[in-house]
Amino acid sequence: MRRQRKITIADLSRVVGMAAQNLSAILQGKKDSRASTFESLAAAMEAEWVLVPKERLMEVRQILEGKGSGPDRAARSSLDVFLSHHE
């Protein structure tokens, strides 16, 4: 996301108040960090940091890829609605 938004590590580190070297290590998974750090990083990139239950991860990924939208299969069809009003 940082690359997509064309934000350098130096710029991001200034916004979140962290040394660029430490931020780089966190982003590369070489150093652990607190949840508040991830919240700050997300806010700096105009994003939201969220936890997704593993059983819902595939659904969330599909939605983010634009593949999760479509007809509501549980909704009544227009034919069902029409017939219910004319019974």
Rank of each mutant, 00 (worst) to 15 (best):
L23C: 09
S24R: 12
E39S: 03
V15P: 00
L57C: 08
D32C: 08
L83R: 10
R56I: 01
R61I: 10
E55S: 08
G17E: 09
G17V: 10
A35S: 07
R56K: 11
M58H: 10
E55Q: 09
A42T: 02
W49P: 01
M45R: 03
R76N: 07
M58V: 13
E59S: 12
L12Y: 01
M18E: 07
L41H: 00
G68V: 12
F82N: 05
A44P: 03
S33V: 06
E46P: 00
K67D: 11
S78L: 15
G17Y: 06
T8Q: 04
A19D: 14
K67E: 15
G29N: 11
A43R: 09
A20Y: 05
A74D: 08
Q21I: 10
M45S: 02
A42S: 07
L27N: 04
E55F: 07
P71F: 04
L23P: 08
R5M: 10
S77M: 13
M45I: 04
K6E: 12
Q4P: 00
Q62P: 00
L64D: 11
L83T: 07
V50C: 00
V81E: 14
A19R: 12
R73M: 15
A44N: 04
Q21W: 08
A25R: 14
S36M: 03
H86N: 15
D11A: 11
L41V: 12
I26D: 09
M45V: 03
